[in-house]
Structures are given as C-alpha cells and as structure tokens.
Write a protein that binds this DNA or RNA. Structure first.
Length: 597
RNA sequence: GGCCGCGUGCCAGAGUGGUCUAAUGGGGCGGAUUGCAAAUCCGUUGCGCAAGCUUCGUCGGUUCGAAUCCGACCGCGGCCUCCA
C-alpha cells in the first residue's frame, strides 16, 4: 500500500506523514510579505504547498495512521478501495485540509537587498517606491493608495498577490475569498501575540530588558533545550553574526547571543501597537506561532490553550528553505514553550516541508542580473498562468529547479496536448462512442497508479507529468477543441471520478477522463478556464497565451486576407505577429492557433 | 568555521542495488502533411558494420552486481537573527 511519504526537515528523512486526525489535516504555510509583488521564486514555494494540499485532500491520497488512532477502524470499512489496506493502518481521502497562510503586513522588515539604507523599514521603502510610481503616473488607473499609510500599502500589495495567486490556481487563496480566517493578517493578530509573549514571560522563557521607552522583550533560547533541532544550528555551533546581519547594539541586551526579539518598544515606528511593554511592534517569528494556531483551530485561545505533552499543534508546516533558520527554529521554540504543558520533548509541527530556491536561466534570480520575474511580469508578456504554474511545479520541490523561457514554452505546449486529449475523450463520451479495442487507455491501465505512487513518494510531480505524456499515441491535431469547453469538464466531484475510474463496467473513455481529472485536481493546469472571451473563440485557440485586442485585430485581418487568397498580405501579418513574439499555426475552418514564439 | 539540500545524456528532468545506454518532454536529423510555414503524426538521436564497448560531478570503498549504498573531495544552492 502506498502511503504519502515526505522529506521531513525535522528528521532529515523521507517518512510517512501521519496527521493526528486523517479526516482533518492542519497545514500552515508561511505566506508573503506584502510590500512588493511576489516573484516566481515566492510562487514556486507556495505552489509546491498547493500541490501538496491538493493531493492530501484528494481521494487518491492514502495516509498512514498513528497506532490506535480514533478513526482507524471506520475508514477501513467504508472508504478503502484497496484490498491490502485492510491489513494496514491507513486512511484514504477525500479529506479536509485546513490550509492556512498568513499575510505579513507588519512593517518591521528591514530591506538589505535593494534598499541599501541599512535597515530601512521595508514598508517605508515600498511607500517610497509607490510614491515615485504615482508621481511618474505609472500607477494603474483607478488605484488610489496613500504611499504614506503602511496599512494601505500592505492592502494594495495583498490585493495584487491574491490576484496573481488566483490566476496560478492557489486553492487556498480562492478559499480565503469565502473564509478570511484562512489568510490571517499579522496586524490583526497583535493582541494574540501579546498574550503569547505574556505567557512566555510567565513561564520564564522570555525576559524584558531596557528602561521604559526603550524596552525590548527577548525569547530566551536557553529555556528550550531542543533549540537547533530543525536546522542543526544548535546553540554551541552557532557563530554569532556570521550572516553579517546583526548589530552590536541589538546584541548588547541579550542574555544569550541567539536570543531573539518578541517585542520592541518604539513609539516612533511606522506601525505600532500598545502593549504591557509600551507602544511598539512584535518580532517577526511570533506572528506565525499565533496565526498557525488561530487559523487552523478557530476555537483555540492562544492566551490559555494547553497542548498535552509531545502532541503536535499542527500537522504540516511549509515555507521557503531560507525560513528554516532562524524563523522556523524560533517558531518551534516559542510555540512549544507557550502552548505545551511540558516544552521539553514537545512537537510543534509534525512534518516540515521546505521547497528549495528557484534558479532562473541557470543563475540565482536577482534584479541586477535581469533574470528577476514577478508572476505578473510573465502574465503581462502574454504567458498563460497555467503554463507558468506547470513550469513552476514540474521539477521536484527539493531540487533547485531552473526556470527558463524555453521551459515555459514547453509547458504551454504540454498543457495544450493534454487538453487536446481531454477534448478527444470528452467527444467520445458526449457521442457515447463504444470502446475501441485498438485504443490504449494508458491512464486507466496503469498510469494513474504510477502517478499516485510518484506523488506518495515525496511528491514527485515530474513523474506524474511523465505519466501524462507517455504512451499517448493518438493524433490530437484534428480533435475539435470545442469539446474541451464542454460543461461536464468544469464541474466534477472527485469522489465520483475516483469511483468511475475504478469501475470496469464504465465506458473506457469515461474512465480515462476520470483519471485525467483526478490527476489534474493536483496539477491544476488542464481544466482551468482560459482567459479567452467568447469574442476570440471564432478566431482560434490561444495556447499558453493571453489574447490582446491588438493581436486579435491582426488575426482577423489575416483571416480575411487568406480567405481571398491574398497570401502576400497574410504573410506580412504573420511576420508582424512574429515580431511581436507570437507564432501562429493555421488550423481548420480558417482558424489559427497562437503561441509564444 | 558550522548546519542543511542538490549534482544524471545537447537542454529540462525521472530513475535510489540487477529487467539501466538510463523514463518523459524539448531540441537535432529523416519521412508524411502544408499556398509557404507552423503544428501534428511516424522513425531516429552514446560509439561501432558487427560480436561488443563505454556513460550518470571526481576519486576510492562495500557488493556476485552501483546512477542507486558508504567515505573523501570538487561544484551549485540555502541558512547562521528577521529575503520563498
């Protein structure tokens, strides 16, 4: 039996993921800081988390169960379709995943990357940039944001982040439109942070230094013996200041050099709140300790909740690899010391999932190298979001994937081939075609099983893509794409798809389509609505491309030229489109297919 | 200096003890098709006419057998107090 196994940063091994309650998995992802647009590296990390949560909640995913778990008996009887499962402790989906991602909108981040102003607040930098954009008239029409108000700046970029994320199919963001508690804002949880800091002080895990007006609360790392277990940076091995980002002034009041900030009294700060330690702002790490609990368990009160010894608080936690230390290390220390009855030996999150950084054209992404892209940069260039999504999830999350323009084109073409296959299968279903004994249903036969095994083995998305590509030996060039737009492709119940996929009495085409939908429920790139409006459908198909009115006009002009066999005009228009970066292909009925060159 | 991840063919990227000259896609080459293209489909793509020989960062080791396990080294990426 294949159960989901993941590389756990905490144990540095690939191991079975065993949530406390397999019917309700809690998952927390460190979210974006909203002082700028998210770039494709940010999104790679968020998309890896999205793929994981989509798989966990799907009927394809089987989870191992802790011995003696409460729901163990029931699932074996009712849910499992696999014979061997009855002998082992496991639980088959579908199941609920409570996925929470915070929005870091507190302006205490310092910008050492491109601000240069040695510790200038990121929100202040963002405000200055916005102000410049506003003066230059570069701000989009209808946007009214006051560059002096950090809350407005944060809301502005939060809105843009959600817009990009929706296009890229981040399920969590779409859910958060219905339930805002799934994307909590740090600024709205400062009260909880203060409560947790008070608890930490009361338990001797934190201390206050400095005179009134300049008070600072630090977490005492020596209060938590397990400090260092996630990153390997144990207290005896840490070398103070090796990262070159600590100032002597900040270190002077600490009992131990690794102690970190929980609260800083600073009435002059750009964003500030009242607290028992004066007006000021919270440390960076404390927000996630609070929001991971508040988001995944709405009933919990961070001021009073007590977790029994060694019991995890959440099942799964993700974030970029740069968060491993110090952020996640500190989060563990805070949460265990604040919430666990016995911090020693406690577990905050059971499984830690850290996607690695993305390279672009073989190099580290940086603004100075010119290989720095935000998601919206790519959308603006006409790349379809689904292609960007596939390009970002196609490589194993734990390797340094290389994002390339060529790869983006490949991804767009790949998606279109899959869509053509979906259109073909849909056509056969709609027309109630009989099974063709000469046709190989490669997914139904074994591809689905291979793909599921790959996902169970540390979320191997590349292998899933290979399964979707392989053994597909049919000419998809002549399939009428209108079948892809068939309403049945846009609403499907995954539990039902799973049943159909495993029901031998069903039509082969129907079963194959069910397999395709199941796999795409994880990848999220095939059955996504294209941006194309009704008005452009009569011209043709936009492959990995967002149509623009300008392109549309040229295509119409060219279609008319071809109708009257004016090939000179037709070729001239094709060249013009090529110069704009579009490749076109003539298809049936005077239609064209448009892609990126 | 410490801790962690990764290193596969022209490119991207699977493969974690034998069925591996190594999945899959791209690119290249040949063919079908096309107003010309593009796309699509078929074949081919380490060397050799062949029996056969040789690849998976490098060097060693374990094993009957290694891309796969172990060690060292080299390279890339991340972190060492607030960049996914």
């Amino acid at each position: 039996m294949n159960v989901l196994r993941l590389f756990n940063t905490l144990t540095k091994r690939v191991e079975a993921f065993e949530p406390r309650d397999p019917e309700r998995v809690t998952f927390y992802t460190c979210g974006p800081t909203v002082y700028d647009d998210a770039h494709i590296g940010n999104f790679r990390s968020f998309l890896a988390a999205d793929v994981l949560r989509r798989f966990i909640e799907s009927p394809m995913c089987v989870l191992a169960e802790e011995p003696g778990h409460r729901s163990g008996e029931r699932c074996h009887q009712e849910r499992c379709h696999q014979e061997r499962c009855h002998q082992e402790r496991c639980h088959r989906g579908p199941r609920q995943v409570v996925h929470v991602m915070n929005i870091t909108d507190v302006g205490h981040m310092t910008d050492d990357a491109d601000g240069g102003e040695n510790g200038e607040d990121r929100m202040a930098v963002a405000g200055r940039r916005l102000l410049e954009a506003k003066k230059a008239g570069k701000l989009a029409a209808g946007v009214d944001v006051d560059p002096k108000d950090p809350r407005q700046i944060a809301r502005y970029f939060e809105g843009r982040f959600k817009e990009d994320a929706r296009k890229l199919g981040l399920k969590l963001v779409m859910e958060a439109d219905q339930d805002a508690t799934l994307m909590p804002r740090a600024t709205e949880h400062v009260g909880g942070m203060i409560k947790v800091i008070e608890r930490l002080i009361a338990r001797g895990a934190a201390y206050v230094v400095g005179d009134v007006g300049r008070r600072v609360v630090y977490f005492s790392v020596q209060a938590f013996p397990a400090y260092g277990s996630l990153s390997g940076n144990t207290l005896d091995k840490l070398r103070e200041g090796a990262g070159g980002r600590v100032s002597a002034e900040n270190q002077s009041g600490k009992r131990h050099p690794a102690d970190f900030l929980l609260w800083k009294e600073d009435p002059s700060h750009i964003m500030k709140w009242a607290s028992p330690w004066g007006e000021g702002y919270p440390g960076w790490h404390i927000e996630c300790s609070v929001m991971s609990v508040a988001g995944t368990d709405a009933r919990a009160d961070v001021g009073t909740m007590v977790v029994p010894d060694a019991e995890p608080i959440i099942d799964l936690h993700s974030g970029g690899e740069d968060n491993i230390f110090p952020h996640h290390e500190c989060e563990i220390a805070q949460s265990c010391c604040a919430f666990n009855a016995q911090p020693r030996g406690a577990t905050y999150a059971k499984m830690w999932f850290h996607p690695r950084f993305l390279l672009v054209e073989g190099e580290k992404m940086s603004k100075s190298k010119g290989n720095f892209f935000t998601a919206r940069d790519l959308f603006a260039k006409g790349h379809e979001p689904a292609a960007v999504r596939l390009e970002l999830i196609k490589t194993h999350y734990r390797s340094n994937a290389n994002f390339t323009e060529q790869g983006l084109k490949d991804s767009a073409a790949r998606i279109e081939r899959w869509r053509a296959y979906a259109a073909f299968l849909t056509k056969q279903c709609v027309e109630h075609a009989d099974d063709d004994p000469g046709f190989t249903f490669y997914l139904t036969a074994e591809g689905l099983g291979h793909a599921i095994r790959a996902l169970c083995t540390d979320l191997n998305t590349a292998r899933v893509i290979a399964e979707l590509d392989s053994k597909q030996s049919m000419d998809v060039s002549n399939v009428e794409r209108k079948y892809f737009e068939h309403p049945s492709n846009w609403e499907s119940d995954l539990g039902e798809e799973w049943r159909v996929a495993h029901d031998p009495s069903q039509n082969g085409y129907r079963r194959e389509l069910a397999c395709l939908r199941l796999l795409d429920s994880v990848l999220g790139v095939i059955f996504t609505s294209r941006q194309s409006s009704e008005s452009v459908r009569d011209i043709g198909l936009f492959i990995g491309v967002e149509p623009s009115p300008e392109v549309e006009a040229k295509l119409r002009e060219r279609r008319d030229a071809r109708a009257r066999k004016d090939f000179a005009a037709s070729d001239r228009l094709r060249d013009e489109l090529a110069a704009m970066g579009y490749a076109i292909k003539d298809a049936k009925d005077g239609k064209v297919e448009v892609r990126r060159k």
